[in-house]
Structures are given as C-alpha cells and as structure tokens.
Simulated assay, not measured.
Amino acid sequence: MQNYTIRKYTSADYQAWNDFINQAKNATFLFHRDFMEYHQDRFEDYSLIVENGIGWVAVLPANRVEDEVFSHQGLTYGGLVFKDDLKLEKVILIFKSLSKQLYENRINKLVLKEIPMIYCDFFSDEMKYILFLVEAKLIKRDTLAVIDLSKEIPIAKNRIEGVNRGIKNQLIIKEENDFSVFWNTILIPNLMNKHNAKPVHTLEEIQFLKSKFPSNIRQFNVYKENELIGGTTIFESKNVAHSQYISANSFKNEYGTLDYLHHYLITEIFRNKKYFDFGISNEEQGKKLNGGLSYWKESFGATTLTQDFYEVQTKNYSKLEEVII
C-alpha cells in the first residue's frame, strides 16, 4: 500500500507549490501563494503538502483556528487539490492519511468548502464521495447563478429593456486598471449604506492583487458622460468569468447601468469562456435567499449551481480503513 507523507507548507515551498497548482485539475489562481498570502495577517496558515516519496501528489490550502483546520477561510472555494492522473483509490488513501495525521495532532475538525465543478478542468467529485464515507456534516449550501456560455443565452425581456436604456443614455464602458474611483465612490458607500458592510478586499488589497494577477483581476466601469455610475470587478480563471463585486449608483434602473454592462460582458468580452458566474445571492449560511438579486441574475439566463460546505470529524479517518475491496 502506498505510504504518504503530510507536512506543513513553508516559504521554501513557494515555487513548488505554485508549479503544482498550475498543473492541478481542480485549482485556479486563487490557490497561488501570492493570492493566499495577501491577507496572511488575518489567518494562521496551515496549508498541507502530501508527498509519496517521489514527489507531490496533493495539497490542501488551509488555515487553523485552535483545534480546527479550515479549507482556507480567505478563499471562495478550496479543498484537496490534485492532478488529473490521481485515481479515486489514491485520493481516498491520501485523505485517510491526512485526516489521521490531523487527528493525531489533536485537530478535531476539518471544515471543507467545495470548489464548484465549473472551475475544474475535469470532473472532480472524488471529495464528495469521500465526505459521504466519513459521514461529513453538511453545514452550509450556497447557490451560484451561472450562465453556460456554450449555449444560446435566454436573456429576459426586462434585461434587454435595461440594455436599451443604456444605449439611449449613451453609456460608456471602460476597462481600467485603477480601482480607486469605483471603490471609493460606488462600492464602499453602497455596501455601507445597504448592508453596513465593507468589501472583502480593501482598495490596497485589490490593487496589490491586480499587480500580481493582471490578466485575472479586471475592472469594468460604466460612465454617463464623464461620471462613473457603476461597475463590476471580474475574477477571470481558465473556464470562468466571475463577478466578484457588482455595484452602481441610485440611477442604475433609470440608466440601465448594470444590465448594459453585464450584457456587454456576457456577449462580447467573455463570450468565449465556458461559464459566467454571478456568484451567490445567499445570506445566513445559505438559509436565506435575496430573491430580487437572484431573479436579476437568472433573467440573464443564469441557472443554479450549488456549493457545499462540510465539517469532518478527523477521528472518522477510520471509516476509510476497509472501503477499498
């Protein structure tokens, strides 16, 4: 039986980690160390590397809070990352070894968040099967609104009406490298006024990430004459364009700001992507749905994809002992 060695990531592994991520079947630029570490002051990194004596076979981007390890809380998605040539039996054995080591190191819980299948190059549900075997507890389920761009997009009449208002108002869309105006005049005020919240990324953080991932993080702003009236921040990976932030001023319905912008992104800028991901419309651990926001996304032709979050008791590694026959 294959023996695996699990160890914590160190700064000496920086290049090897990023090289592995670039070859994995279920990873995006979010797992690059430069992205993971922009907020390292907020998290105790507990990323793990799995080796088989020849080389790396898997990694787990993670952080630790007391006696729990989390699929990194600073990332939108995560889980065990591996190459496409790793067979299911090996993934089971790797997870058993990893869970056993965590248990022996007095880590009682492992909390995992799925990476939605649209972000993977191949089917990648090995972990879903393993989580069933170890009797993982489903603790959260979010709904993503996703457009399959390979199919004809059934955009609703009221969205087209918004696009036409944008044309009538002579709106201008610009891709820009400076995030400051959007952040300071649109995004931050709107989030504070509507939700008493702040963006996940500060202006300094998003500008830093843009400098590290210039082709992956893109800002599209909408202007009426010379005034910024709305915009969206896109995280672009190999298969998916994802709207990380969407916001506009109070005239968005009158001008058709966001309808005009997203119609342009979907039909022009990202028409050759596999998917456009509007993200979630959920609150309270997935128990509540913002109906208006969900409807707006669906009226662009988006349909529902779920993302699950699981809690694993590490002692349950023993349930993987006699699975393979």
Score class of each variant (00 low, 15 high):
167 I>Y: 12
175 E>I: 11
14 Y>T: 09
136 A>H: 03
17 W>H: 02
216 N>W: 11
71 S>D: 09
40 Q>M: 03
14 Y>I: 12
115 I>Y: 02
232 T>R: 02
224 K>A: 06
54 I>F: 01
169 N>G: 11
36 M>H: 07
218 R>Q: 06
254 E>P: 12
230 G>L: 13
220 F>C: 07
4 Y>R: 05
227 E>T: 15
140 K>M: 15
66 E>T: 07
248 A>V: 04
201 H>W: 07
63 N>S: 11
108 N>Y: 08
242 H>T: 08
260 Y>E: 12
131 L>S: 00
271 R>V: 14
111 V>H: 02
19 D>C: 10
263 H>G: 04
295 Y>M: 05
152 E>V: 03
62 A>E: 09
103 Y>Q: 00
160 I>N: 09
164 N>V: 08
29 F>W: 12
41 D>V: 07
93 L>D: 10
82 F>E: 08
151 K>F: 01
181 V>E: 14
230 G>V: 12
255 Y>L: 15
295 Y>F: 08
225 E>N: 15
310 Y>M: 14
175 E>M: 14
115 I>H: 04
152 E>T: 00
98 L>P: 04
125 D>W: 02
139 I>Q: 01
323 V>K: 11
190 N>S: 15
155 I>N: 11
26 N>K: 00
171 L>H: 05
25 K>I: 13
242 H>W: 10
179 F>V: 06
283 E>Y: 09
52 N>F: 02
66 E>W: 12
105 N>A: 14
157 K>H: 13
19 D>F: 14
245 Y>T: 12
37 E>R: 11
255 Y>G: 12
1 M>L: 14
293 L>I: 10
183 W>K: 10
282 N>F: 03
169 N>C: 11
35 F>S: 11
159 R>N: 13
275 Y>D: 01
303 T>W: 10
320 L>K: 13
136 A>P: 00
75 L>D: 00
28 T>I: 03
294 S>G: 13
61 P>Q: 09
282 N>H: 07
318 S>M: 13
260 Y>D: 08
26 N>H: 00
228 L>S: 10
300 F>Y: 08
203 L>K: 14
12 A>P: 01
210 K>S: 15
32 H>E: 13
240 V>E: 02
128 K>H: 01
21 I>R: 06
154 P>I: 08
143 T>A: 09
305 L>W: 03
20 F>I: 03
74 G>A: 14
272 N>W: 05
166 G>M: 08
170 Q>K: 14
206 I>T: 04
221 N>E: 02
112 L>I: 13
121 D>P: 00
58 A>S: 05
163 V>I: 12
32 H>T: 06
58 A>L: 01
282 N>G: 03
71 S>W: 06
22 N>T: 08
319 K>A: 05
320 L>E: 09
63 N>M: 02
203 L>N: 15
70 F>K: 00
59 V>S: 00
53 G>E: 02
305 L>E: 15
187 L>D: 04
79 G>R: 01
81 V>Q: 01
324 I>V: 15
